[in-house]
Design a protein around this nucleic acid. Sequence first.
DNA 1: TGAGGTTTATAAAAATAATTATAAACTTGC
DNA 2: GCAAGTTTATAATTATTTTTATAAACCTCA
Lengths: 416, 416
Amino acid sequence: MQCLSKNNSNTLVVDIFLKKIEEVSNESRQYTQKRKIVALLNKSEKPLTIPGICKKVKLSVPTGTKLINELISDNIIIEFGKKETDNGRRPSLYKVDPEIAYCIGTVVLLKGISFAVYNLEMEEVFSMQDENFILENTESCLDEVVRFIQEAISKSGIDPSRVLGMGMGITGRVNSRTGFSYNYFNFLEGALTDFFSGKFSFPVHIDNDTHVLGLAEQYFGEAKNIKNAFVLNLSRGMGLAIIANGELVVGEQGFAGEMGHIQFAESDKLCLCGKRGCLGTEVSGYALEQNFQQQIEAGESSLLLNQKQATQIKYKDILKAATEGDSLAISLTHNIGFILGKAMGNMINLLNPGVIIIGGEFVSAKEILIDSIKSGMMHTGLQLPLRSCELIFSSIGDDAASKGAAAIVFRSLQLI
Amino acid sequence: MQCLSKNNSNTLVVDIFLKKIEEVSNESRQYTQKRKIVALLNKSEKPLTIPGICKKVKLSVPTGTKLINELISDNIIIEFGKKETDNGRRPSLYKVDPEIAYCIGTVVLLKGISFAVYNLEMEEVFSMQDENFILENTESCLDEVVRFIQEAISKSGIDPSRVLGMGMGITGRVNSRTGFSYNYFNFLEGALTDFFSGKFSFPVHIDNDTHVLGLAEQYFGEAKNIKNAFVLNLSRGMGLAIIANGELVVGEQGFAGEMGHIQFAESDKLCLCGKRGCLGTEVSGYALEQNFQQQIEAGESSLLLNQKQATQIKYKDILKAATEGDSLAISLTHNIGFILGKAMGNMINLLNPGVIIIGGEFVSAKEILIDSIKSGMMHTGLQLPLRSCELIFSSIGDDAASKGAAAIVFRSLQLI
DNA sequence: TGAGGTTTATAAAAATAATTATAAACTTGC
DNA sequence: GCAAGTTTATAATTATTTTTATAAACCTCA
């Protein structure tokens, strides 16, 4: 009430989203109740009725009605038709006006940067990419990121005062709790989130690219209603997002998920981390490229050589060739799938997930991977946990990561 | 109020503990508030003042005072002296009467069964063991368990109507959500919890012995204030309790933690599960016994042979001999520690815990194990997560498991 | 088509809780 | 040793919320 009476000012309208429900504060009781109603409506897939809302927030219908009407005149929630019922007077349905506030998801990868704005229903209202961006641990690269985001915000035409926050997925090791980044932009004195928050008028959160992909599956993808899940990010590198008890596991410092550095490899190739036997040396886009070159040198042939030199061929090319029937590409992909499957079988024993979702660039070769992964899993997984674990491939698509990054904002405000 | 006015009946007094706070119900608002106050006081380590309570449950001091006074006349909470402050009138302190209700923890192992009653401050008020018990998957064994518990309750002298529930830790695979046991007492048509609940007047929960040990460390031991931790149960077998985001991870069906069946072994001995390379074939009390016999057969000597024949020597004997300086025992224990350490290093990469707690019978050889585990961890763990992960040995003692089992009850009622 | 049943929504009355004011208990410092 | 400052606890007043009652909207079935 106190803040919402003057709803000409956007900042004040957005204020109702910006505090967690249980947060202790000396705001009026009614305002807390209003925030509860708004959060409930935002979390709900479908619009709700007044009696439904009142039951959930434990309010009587008269007071609930009063608060809801105030929220309507504040332009925060809107009426949305009437509910079809079998008998009785039809109740009006209400939902949060999806265009009253926005959140931003940004993803910074080794190659490429992307930006997207989502409304409260998580519909993309604007997006922008730069495929030519190259991530470097330099001040000038950081400036480039800031400029890119500023330009994107300006092009999107959204009012920054209506932005609840920005979530950022960034390659490398990141402490999502403190906001520090350890591999990139680590020259800053303070947290990377603080640096960005200083540049923009809204709060900024970060996590690594794999975790952000996990959040996308958790909230919008195949893990939506499953409390325990794995989301594998298999591209040039590999990472694992673990969802346990319905929450993403980031660990004590945010480093959880380094599955590429578990000693599950069958050979003892030297890994970039300095150790031997890391799974990532055999299961990754990088490994696929290495294996391909090795096989060519050993005399194997491939249709890919018609287009490019062996050393120029990237893992995405090999995956594409595999789907097109190139037998060397298929056999190499198969092999990776089998080793991956054995590793996943062990992971199943450890954490008993209900579903494993394969995401990342390797999804393009899903027909070739699925059986090899499954047969690998059979080798190491125990009967009971294996039986109830589904293996599927991600279907959210290209904007998964930025959607997941934006979800960090909603999660932090308990709006999801 | 409605239930508590007649507090002669114990069942009605205990009623205030038996519902979760946020549970939707049509009880009076004041009663819900009372339950909030009781839960808050029970969770709090120290007694609280009226203003403190009112701030936490978001009530004004006058209404809070009224409810607290009612709870006092209902004999549920008690005054507990006055708080020392620097200035101002000294507030009275209040806490839940610890003897108003109890919970039971029972642990059923392959050899031995134990029972303990705890008051609301988790102090043991009664305990009973039967070391001669042998677990079998038979109806007569199940009867024996029931008889043992009935006898223990009767001997303890506690009023069953004051028992909030019983938590049971049982060896083998267990689905703690559904209450089904898959290895023992699996001949029942329904859930094992339903069977027990039918025998007693209070609800019964189960989980496996390793998870229960993890709960003990989480709530009362070394993991108390750490959100991400491992608790290893290293005895004749091995299991891992994983705590992530402040919650025990049991997985989708409750099977999480089968670390003994991850392919981290260096040899490819056949495991009882039918697979090869399982960590448990090299890191467990069973493996220690096997290795000992093998070494003796190969001509090694040990002080232990003065007491018993090689085939009669149990892993506990070997651990004891190691602490007493027997060089074969030390070298075998060391070796297990090193392999375990390498496995733990990988687990650290995966889940980035803040602490690893070694529990189980192997704790007796902690001086010998600690360095070998640490050096193993160095071999496989990544720098960043390794640096911030502490390795410690459990110090809760013998009743850890039953305390953890009892904690299931408190956890289910949000009293912890 | 209209009576009976059901549910939503609003109005008036009753119950409940929060503010405000005041008293009591305690420390500190002159 | 007592005034000033601080905090707890209770009493009286004010505000809010729930209950109860009533009206309105809608279905079904005779």
